[in-house]
Amino acid sequence: MSARPFASPVERLGRGALRVLVGAGFLFLLAPIVAVIPLSFNGGDFLSYPLRGVSLQWYARVFEPFPWMTGLANSLTVASATTVLATVVGTLAAYGLATSDFRGRGLVMGLMISPMLVPLVITGLAIYLAFARYGLVHTFVGLILAHTILALPFVVVTVTATLQGFDRNMMRAASSLGASPLTAFRTVTMPLIAPGILSGAVFAFVTSFDEVVVALFLAGPGQFTLPRHMFTALRDKLDPSIVALATLLILVSILLLIVVELLRWRSERLRRGRP
């Protein structure tokens, strides 16, 4: 979009306006995330500029056992179990949906993605009422099952997208060479769609790690996750340690974003047949 010498004044004006608009948009998106980072090193007790000296006191607070470290431990427990369950079940389902054509396939697909669209409060309330009957409320098992439901659509969508670019003739070639369907999946399909499965897993992890509404319904004090503690902290009193925690979580999300970008890059290379 280099400025062309023969561009009319209207065009130049439009282009300038577009630049300003887009710049403002990115500023709006990124400024809040960037602006909290310096505050986390604040020496004073208030969450405002100018900073009163530099200190790591709030980070020290984050690493105290309660609430943040116990919350982190609970979050990691729930998110890792959710990731394993949702990735395995979701990948199988996506593979089944992509490779065969049974009646009601569209309906099943619609059902699979619906937890993404149903408001979280509804899912939380419904699961709470159902799980209360089986004593699953205020247990890790209940929370993990509920989070798996929420994470499943992300795995199915991501793996399905990968499978759409997958050349099924490779499977046919494998079976014509005598491989059983399982062997063909393990040695041909799996390596090719692995990046998609892994990014689905990252999505599942983040979905659970970030989730607070269903946790409000299903987690008892023994299962309070990190976001659940953050919700209480934000609602009741703005404790500066939350900004230090936020900074650390921003670093984690940057890391995860890089992982997903690398996986996508790898997946695209594999698809173009240059492993």
């Binding site: 995330i33 602006a35 909290v36 983040v206 970030d210 953050m230 900004v243 979580l249 921003i250 999300s253």
Partner: peptide, 15 residues
Amino acid sequence: FWTSLLVRTAAWVVL
């Protein structure tokens, strides 16, 4: 988008 919803909400409360 990858940043926790609560982190972003906290950021706006602070700002």
